[in-house]
Computed example of a mutant assay.
Amino acid sequence: MTTGQEFNRDTNYITTRITRDGAEGYPVEPGRYRLVVSRACPWANRSIIVRRLLGLEDAISMGVCGPTHDRRSWTFDLDPGGVDPVLGIERIQDAYFARFPDYPRGITVPAIVDVPTGAVVTNDYPQITLDLSTEWARYHREGAPQLYPEHLRDEIDEVALRVFKDVNNGVYRCGFAGSQESYERAYHRLFGAMDWLEERLSKQRFLVGDTITEADVRLFTTLVRFDPVYHGHFKCNRQKLIEFPALWGYARDLFQTPGFGDTIDFDQIKRHYYVVHEDINPTRIVPAGPDLSNWLTPHHREQLGGRPFGDGTPPGPVREGERVAAGHTPLAQA
Protein backbone atom coordinates (compact mmCIF):
# COMPACT_ATOMS: atom_id res chain seq x y z
CA MET A 1 0.00 0.00 0.00
CA THR A 2 1.43 3.38 -0.99
CA THR A 3 0.23 6.77 0.19
CA GLY A 4 -2.98 7.83 -1.49
CA GLN A 5 -4.06 4.39 -2.58
CA GLU A 6 -7.30 2.68 -1.63
CA PHE A 7 -7.24 -0.87 -0.33
CA ASN A 8 -8.11 -3.36 -3.05
CA ARG A 9 -8.62 -6.99 -2.10
CA ASP A 10 -7.05 -9.60 -4.37
CA THR A 11 -10.03 -11.72 -5.41
CA ASN A 12 -8.20 -14.01 -7.82
CA TYR A 13 -8.73 -17.30 -6.02
CA ILE A 14 -8.31 -20.93 -7.00
CA THR A 15 -11.77 -21.45 -8.44
CA THR A 16 -11.72 -25.24 -8.83
CA ARG A 17 -14.97 -26.66 -7.48
CA ILE A 18 -15.87 -29.90 -5.74
CA THR A 19 -19.10 -31.02 -7.38
CA ARG A 20 -21.45 -33.97 -7.45
CA ASP A 21 -20.47 -34.83 -11.01
CA GLY A 22 -16.76 -34.23 -10.45
CA ALA A 23 -16.62 -32.17 -13.64
CA GLU A 24 -13.43 -30.40 -12.56
CA GLY A 25 -11.71 -33.52 -11.30
CA TYR A 26 -12.84 -33.34 -7.69
CA PRO A 27 -16.10 -35.19 -6.99
CA VAL A 28 -18.02 -34.90 -3.75
CA GLU A 29 -16.70 -37.75 -1.64
CA PRO A 30 -17.03 -37.97 2.16
CA GLY A 31 -13.71 -38.30 3.96
CA ARG A 32 -11.61 -37.20 1.00
CA TYR A 33 -11.23 -33.50 1.76
CA ARG A 34 -10.02 -31.37 4.66
CA LEU A 35 -11.26 -27.85 5.30
CA VAL A 36 -8.39 -25.72 6.61
CA VAL A 37 -9.40 -22.62 8.56
CA SER A 38 -8.38 -20.18 11.22
CA ARG A 39 -10.95 -19.10 13.78
CA ALA A 40 -9.44 -15.61 13.63
CA CYS A 41 -10.29 -15.07 9.96
CA PRO A 42 -13.80 -13.81 9.11
CA TRP A 43 -13.72 -15.37 5.64
CA ALA A 44 -12.80 -18.78 7.10
CA ASN A 45 -15.30 -18.34 9.93
CA ARG A 46 -18.09 -18.49 7.34
CA SER A 47 -17.13 -22.00 6.29
CA ILE A 48 -16.82 -23.15 9.92
CA ILE A 49 -20.38 -21.95 10.59
CA VAL A 50 -21.89 -23.44 7.42
CA ARG A 51 -20.15 -26.80 7.91
CA ARG A 52 -21.55 -26.97 11.45
CA LEU A 53 -25.08 -25.79 10.57
CA LEU A 54 -25.31 -28.39 7.80
CA GLY A 55 -23.80 -31.20 9.89
CA LEU A 56 -20.92 -31.97 7.53
CA GLU A 57 -18.41 -32.79 10.26
CA ASP A 58 -18.26 -36.48 9.30
CA ALA A 59 -18.05 -35.74 5.59
CA ILE A 60 -15.33 -33.05 5.68
CA SER A 61 -12.69 -32.93 8.39
CA MET A 62 -11.38 -29.60 9.64
CA GLY A 63 -7.84 -28.44 10.33
CA VAL A 64 -7.39 -25.28 12.39
CA CYS A 65 -4.43 -22.95 11.98
CA GLY A 66 -3.38 -20.61 14.75
CA PRO A 67 -4.46 -16.98 14.90
CA THR A 68 -1.22 -15.43 13.68
CA HIS A 69 0.95 -15.96 10.64
CA ASP A 70 4.05 -14.57 8.97
CA ARG A 71 4.56 -13.45 5.38
CA ARG A 72 4.85 -17.06 4.22
CA SER A 73 1.56 -18.52 5.41
CA TRP A 74 -0.74 -19.70 8.16
CA THR A 75 0.73 -22.39 10.40
CA PHE A 76 -0.67 -25.33 12.38
CA ASP A 77 0.88 -24.14 15.63
CA LEU A 78 -2.15 -25.22 17.68
CA ASP A 79 -1.49 -28.89 16.88
CA PRO A 80 1.04 -31.07 18.73
CA GLY A 81 4.45 -30.49 17.19
CA GLY A 82 2.99 -27.78 14.97
CA VAL A 83 1.90 -30.36 12.38
CA ASP A 84 -1.60 -30.95 11.06
CA PRO A 85 -2.46 -34.51 12.13
CA VAL A 86 -4.19 -35.39 8.85
CA LEU A 87 -2.16 -33.55 6.23
CA GLY A 88 1.19 -33.93 8.00
CA ILE A 89 2.29 -30.38 7.16
CA GLU A 90 3.36 -27.38 9.22
CA ARG A 91 2.07 -24.68 6.88
CA ILE A 92 -0.94 -24.51 4.60
CA GLN A 93 1.41 -23.19 1.91
CA ASP A 94 2.69 -26.76 1.53
CA ALA A 95 -0.72 -27.80 0.19
CA TYR A 96 -0.73 -24.89 -2.24
CA PHE A 97 2.74 -25.75 -3.51
CA ALA A 98 1.79 -29.42 -3.83
CA ARG A 99 -0.58 -28.40 -6.60
CA PHE A 100 1.08 -25.20 -7.86
CA PRO A 101 4.86 -25.29 -7.16
CA ASP A 102 5.22 -21.65 -8.20
CA TYR A 103 1.95 -20.38 -6.71
CA PRO A 104 2.33 -16.58 -6.90
CA ARG A 105 -0.65 -15.29 -4.93
CA GLY A 106 -1.60 -15.00 -1.27
CA ILE A 107 -1.77 -18.18 0.83
CA THR A 108 -5.23 -17.84 2.34
CA VAL A 109 -7.79 -19.62 4.47
CA PRO A 110 -10.27 -21.15 4.15
CA ALA A 111 -8.82 -23.70 1.81
CA ILE A 112 -10.04 -27.18 0.97
CA VAL A 113 -7.30 -29.78 0.53
CA ASP A 114 -7.49 -33.13 -1.24
CA VAL A 115 -6.16 -35.44 1.46
CA PRO A 116 -4.87 -38.28 -0.79
CA THR A 117 -2.64 -35.91 -2.79
CA GLY A 118 -2.09 -33.25 -0.13
CA ALA A 119 -2.88 -30.61 -2.76
CA VAL A 120 -5.14 -27.60 -2.35
CA VAL A 121 -8.36 -27.79 -4.35
CA THR A 122 -9.82 -24.34 -3.76
CA ASN A 123 -9.57 -21.23 -1.61
CA ASP A 124 -12.56 -19.52 -3.26
CA TYR A 125 -14.31 -18.77 0.03
CA PRO A 126 -17.63 -17.40 -1.34
CA GLN A 127 -18.10 -20.48 -3.54
CA ILE A 128 -16.97 -22.91 -0.83
CA THR A 129 -19.95 -22.17 1.41
CA LEU A 130 -22.43 -22.16 -1.47
CA ASP A 131 -21.16 -25.56 -2.60
CA LEU A 132 -21.40 -26.92 0.94
CA SER A 133 -25.09 -26.00 0.79
CA THR A 134 -25.77 -27.35 -2.70
CA GLU A 135 -23.23 -29.88 -3.96
CA TRP A 136 -22.91 -31.62 -0.57
CA ALA A 137 -26.67 -31.77 0.11
CA ARG A 138 -26.73 -35.58 0.12
CA TYR A 139 -24.55 -35.58 3.23
CA HIS A 140 -26.30 -32.88 5.24
CA ARG A 141 -27.57 -33.87 8.66
CA GLU A 142 -31.25 -34.60 9.12
CA GLY A 143 -32.92 -31.27 9.86
CA ALA A 144 -30.20 -29.17 8.21
CA PRO A 145 -31.43 -25.68 7.26
CA GLN A 146 -31.76 -24.41 3.70
CA LEU A 147 -29.09 -21.71 3.67
CA TYR A 148 -29.32 -21.05 -0.06
CA PRO A 149 -32.90 -21.88 -1.09
CA GLU A 150 -33.51 -21.59 -4.82
CA HIS A 151 -36.47 -19.20 -4.58
CA LEU A 152 -34.41 -16.67 -2.59
CA ARG A 153 -31.05 -16.94 -4.36
CA ASP A 154 -31.34 -13.74 -6.38
CA GLU A 155 -32.16 -11.69 -3.28
CA ILE A 156 -29.51 -13.45 -1.18
CA ASP A 157 -26.91 -12.73 -3.87
CA GLU A 158 -27.97 -9.08 -4.14
CA VAL A 159 -27.86 -8.46 -0.39
CA ALA A 160 -24.64 -10.43 0.06
CA LEU A 161 -22.92 -8.41 -2.67
CA ARG A 162 -23.58 -5.11 -0.93
CA VAL A 163 -22.62 -6.60 2.42
CA PHE A 164 -19.32 -7.77 0.92
CA LYS A 165 -18.43 -4.55 -0.88
CA ASP A 166 -19.42 -2.09 1.82
CA VAL A 167 -19.23 -4.01 5.12
CA ASN A 168 -17.16 -7.23 4.98
CA ASN A 169 -14.53 -5.56 2.82
CA GLY A 170 -15.51 -2.06 3.88
CA VAL A 171 -13.88 -2.37 7.30
CA TYR A 172 -10.62 -3.36 5.58
CA ARG A 173 -10.91 -0.42 3.20
CA CYS A 174 -10.99 1.80 6.29
CA GLY A 175 -8.21 0.01 8.12
CA PHE A 176 -5.77 -0.15 5.23
CA ALA A 177 -6.57 3.15 3.55
CA GLY A 178 -3.47 4.81 2.15
CA SER A 179 -4.63 8.40 2.59
CA GLN A 180 -7.04 10.52 4.59
CA GLU A 181 -9.25 10.90 1.54
CA SER A 182 -9.47 7.18 0.78
CA TYR A 183 -10.14 6.45 4.47
CA GLU A 184 -13.00 8.94 4.65
CA ARG A 185 -14.58 7.59 1.46
CA ALA A 186 -14.44 4.07 2.90
CA TYR A 187 -15.70 5.25 6.29
CA HIS A 188 -18.79 6.94 4.86
CA ARG A 189 -19.49 4.02 2.55
CA LEU A 190 -19.25 1.56 5.45
CA PHE A 191 -21.59 3.47 7.73
CA GLY A 192 -24.01 4.18 4.90
CA ALA A 193 -24.33 0.42 4.53
CA MET A 194 -24.59 -0.07 8.29
CA ASP A 195 -27.47 2.43 8.36
CA TRP A 196 -29.16 0.55 5.51
CA LEU A 197 -28.80 -2.73 7.40
CA GLU A 198 -30.08 -1.13 10.61
CA GLU A 199 -33.22 0.01 8.80
CA ARG A 200 -33.73 -3.35 7.09
CA LEU A 201 -33.25 -5.35 10.28
CA SER A 202 -35.52 -3.13 12.33
CA LYS A 203 -38.42 -4.65 10.37
CA GLN A 204 -37.38 -8.27 9.86
CA ARG A 205 -35.51 -10.81 11.93
CA PHE A 206 -33.13 -12.03 9.21
CA LEU A 207 -31.64 -10.46 6.12
CA VAL A 208 -33.61 -12.43 3.51
CA GLY A 209 -36.86 -14.27 4.15
CA ASP A 210 -37.87 -15.54 7.58
CA THR A 211 -35.01 -18.00 8.18
CA ILE A 212 -31.23 -17.91 8.45
CA THR A 213 -29.55 -17.89 5.03
CA GLU A 214 -26.09 -17.55 3.55
CA ALA A 215 -26.52 -13.77 3.70
CA ASP A 216 -26.76 -13.84 7.50
CA VAL A 217 -23.64 -15.99 7.80
CA ARG A 218 -21.70 -13.50 5.69
CA LEU A 219 -22.75 -10.47 7.70
CA PHE A 220 -22.39 -12.09 11.11
CA THR A 221 -18.66 -12.77 10.84
CA THR A 222 -17.98 -9.04 10.39
CA LEU A 223 -20.43 -7.88 13.07
CA VAL A 224 -18.98 -10.19 15.70
CA ARG A 225 -15.53 -8.64 15.12
CA PHE A 226 -16.74 -5.06 14.96
CA ASP A 227 -16.39 -3.84 18.53
CA PRO A 228 -13.41 -6.03 19.57
CA VAL A 229 -11.36 -5.09 16.48
CA TYR A 230 -12.75 -2.95 13.67
CA HIS A 231 -14.08 -0.05 15.76
CA GLY A 232 -10.64 0.85 17.12
CA HIS A 233 -8.02 -1.04 15.13
CA PHE A 234 -9.53 -0.16 11.73
CA LYS A 235 -10.84 3.29 12.79
CA CYS A 236 -14.47 2.33 12.09
CA ASN A 237 -15.52 4.51 14.96
CA ARG A 238 -18.64 6.48 14.10
CA GLN A 239 -20.55 4.03 16.26
CA LYS A 240 -19.96 0.76 18.00
CA LEU A 241 -22.10 -2.21 17.09
CA ILE A 242 -23.78 -1.99 20.50
CA GLU A 243 -25.01 1.50 19.51
CA PHE A 244 -27.09 0.14 16.60
CA PRO A 245 -30.26 -1.21 18.28
CA ALA A 246 -31.41 -3.50 15.45
CA LEU A 247 -27.97 -4.66 14.32
CA TRP A 248 -26.87 -5.34 17.89
CA GLY A 249 -30.02 -7.32 18.63
CA TYR A 250 -29.62 -9.22 15.35
CA ALA A 251 -25.98 -10.04 16.09
CA ARG A 252 -26.84 -11.35 19.56
CA ASP A 253 -29.73 -13.37 18.13
CA LEU A 254 -27.33 -15.16 15.78
CA PHE A 255 -24.57 -15.43 18.38
CA GLN A 256 -26.93 -17.24 20.72
CA THR A 257 -28.06 -19.59 17.93
CA PRO A 258 -26.20 -22.94 17.86
CA GLY A 259 -23.69 -22.92 15.02
CA PHE A 260 -22.80 -19.24 15.26
CA GLY A 261 -21.49 -18.09 18.64
CA ASP A 262 -20.03 -21.49 19.44
CA THR A 263 -17.58 -21.04 16.53
CA ILE A 264 -16.29 -17.67 17.77
CA ASP A 265 -12.95 -17.41 19.56
CA PHE A 266 -12.60 -13.79 20.63
CA ASP A 267 -9.09 -14.32 22.00
CA GLN A 268 -7.82 -15.60 18.66
CA ILE A 269 -9.66 -12.87 16.76
CA LYS A 270 -7.99 -10.11 18.75
CA ARG A 271 -4.56 -11.75 18.68
CA HIS A 272 -4.70 -12.06 14.91
CA TYR A 273 -5.47 -8.45 14.09
CA TYR A 274 -3.43 -6.72 16.76
CA VAL A 275 -0.35 -8.94 16.37
CA VAL A 276 -0.21 -9.54 12.60
CA HIS A 277 -0.95 -5.96 11.50
CA GLU A 278 2.30 -4.43 12.76
CA ASP A 279 1.99 -1.50 10.35
CA ILE A 280 -1.23 -0.48 12.13
CA ASN A 281 -0.29 -1.65 15.64
CA PRO A 282 3.53 -1.63 15.88
CA THR A 283 3.55 -2.39 19.62
CA ARG A 284 1.53 -5.57 18.99
CA ILE A 285 -0.28 -4.98 22.29
CA VAL A 286 -3.59 -6.84 22.35
CA PRO A 287 -6.42 -4.94 24.11
CA ALA A 288 -7.85 -6.56 27.21
CA GLY A 289 -11.42 -5.51 26.40
CA PRO A 290 -14.16 -5.16 25.56
CA ASP A 291 -16.37 -6.95 28.06
CA LEU A 292 -18.07 -9.77 26.15
CA SER A 293 -20.76 -10.78 28.62
CA ASN A 294 -23.28 -8.54 26.84
CA TRP A 295 -23.36 -11.01 23.92
CA LEU A 296 -25.56 -13.22 26.10
CA THR A 297 -28.11 -10.59 27.09
CA PRO A 298 -31.72 -10.98 25.84
CA HIS A 299 -32.23 -9.73 22.28
CA HIS A 300 -36.04 -10.06 21.91
CA ARG A 301 -35.69 -10.56 18.15
CA GLU A 302 -38.21 -13.40 18.27
CA GLN A 303 -40.88 -10.68 18.48
CA LEU A 304 -40.26 -10.04 14.77
CA GLY A 305 -41.29 -13.62 13.96
CA GLY A 306 -39.26 -15.88 11.75
CA ARG A 307 -37.90 -19.34 12.42
CA PRO A 308 -34.10 -19.57 12.48
CA PHE A 309 -33.96 -23.08 11.00
CA GLY A 310 -37.26 -23.08 9.11
CA ASP A 311 -38.60 -26.62 9.07
CA GLY A 312 -35.22 -27.90 10.26
CA THR A 313 -33.55 -28.13 13.63
CA PRO A 314 -30.51 -26.63 15.37
CA PRO A 315 -27.24 -28.54 15.16
CA GLY A 316 -26.27 -30.66 18.15
CA PRO A 317 -23.42 -29.99 20.57
CA VAL A 318 -20.04 -29.00 19.16
CA ARG A 319 -17.87 -32.02 18.45
CA GLU A 320 -15.14 -32.94 20.88
CA GLY A 321 -11.91 -31.45 19.58
CA GLU A 322 -13.69 -28.61 17.79
CA ARG A 323 -14.83 -26.61 20.81
CA VAL A 324 -13.61 -23.07 21.38
CA ALA A 325 -11.22 -22.93 24.33
CA ALA A 326 -12.71 -22.09 27.71
CA GLY A 327 -12.33 -18.41 28.46
CA HIS A 328 -12.25 -17.40 24.80
CA THR A 329 -16.01 -16.93 24.52
CA PRO A 330 -18.77 -15.97 26.97
CA LEU A 331 -20.62 -19.12 25.93
CA ALA A 332 -18.20 -21.14 28.04
CA GLN A 333 -19.74 -19.56 31.11
CA ALA A 334 -23.34 -19.71 29.86
Rank of each mutant, 00 (worst) to 15 (best):
T19A: 11
T257I: 07
F244P: 02
D157K: 02
G63I: 12
P80M: 07
A186F: 12
V120H: 03
G106P: 11
D154C: 06
D131A: 08
H69R: 15
F100N: 13
F220H: 08
R173P: 14
D131W: 01
D166G: 04
E214I: 08
D253Y: 08
V36I: 14
D58C: 02
A332Q: 12
R323E: 15
D267R: 13
L132R: 06
N45Y: 12
R301V: 01
Y13I: 09
R99G: 15
R238C: 04
H151V: 09
G259S: 05
N123T: 02
G310Y: 03
L304A: 03
S38F: 04
Q303V: 10
T297K: 04
P67T: 02
L87K: 07
A137E: 05
G143D: 07
D166K: 13
E278I: 13
Q204K: 02
P27K: 00
V167M: 04
I128Q: 01
P80W: 00
D267M: 05
Q93S: 14
F76P: 08
P228Y: 05
T297S: 07
L197H: 05
R138N: 11
N281A: 09
G316T: 02
P258W: 00
L54I: 01
G327W: 05
Y33G: 13
L56A: 03
R105Q: 06
I212H: 00
A288W: 00
N294T: 12
D10P: 04
R238G: 11
V28K: 00
Q333F: 15
I156P: 03
R32Y: 11
P317M: 05
D70H: 03
R225F: 13
L54P: 01
Q180A: 15
D77G: 11
L56M: 02
P228I: 00
H328R: 06
N281L: 11
V171R: 05
D102E: 14
M194S: 10
L161W: 11
S73G: 11
D195T: 09
W248R: 00
D114E: 14
E302L: 05
A144V: 04
S182R: 13
